[in-house]
């Protein structure tokens, strides 16, 4: 039994959508800043998966190259984000994102 490239791509995309949704849920439900960051990583990862799947479907390596740039952005984002986390923790002694609420009316 051989599954067509298109059909298998659909499967991969389904996995990508599921992982992305889990990431969204993590951002929306968790209060811990670090876990929110990890959820963001998961969402980026899901996007990477979709890139790979489409690249394979089209028979080019452009999708794979896009993944490298995503990785770069993710690495930069994590570095800056974790820096901010450290500073926030210094100030608040807590990483509860609901306590970062000074910017309201």
């Amino acid at each position: 039994m051989v599954i067509s490239v298109a059909a298998s791509t659909n499967l991969v995309l389904a996995l990508s959508a599921i992982l992305f949704s889990i990431g969204v849920l993590g951002v929306l439900l968790r209060r811990h800043v670090l876990i929110i960051y990890m959820s963001i990583e998961l969402m980026l990862n899901a996007a990477n998966l979709a890139f790979i799947a489409f690249g394979r479907l089209q028979g080019t390596i452009d999708g794979q190259i896009a993944v490298f740039f995503t990785l770069t952005v993710a690495a930069a984002e994590v570095a800056v984000g974790l820096g901010i986390v450290v500073v926030v923790y210094r100030e608040l002694k807590s990483l509860d994102i609901d306590r970062l609420n000074l910017l309201k009316f």
């Binding site: 298109a6 599921i18 992305f20 949704s21 889990i22 969204v24 849920l25 394979r56 080019t60």
Partner: peptide, 23 residues
């Protein structure tokens, strides 16, 4: 979140006609 995932998947798999060359 569920809706978003579902819709992303729907949008991703919907490839009408020969718009996309399949390698």
């Amino acid at each position: 979140a569920g809706l978003l995932g579902l819709l992303i998947w729907l949008g991703a798999i919907w490839r009408p006609g020969a718009a996309v060359t399949v390698g």
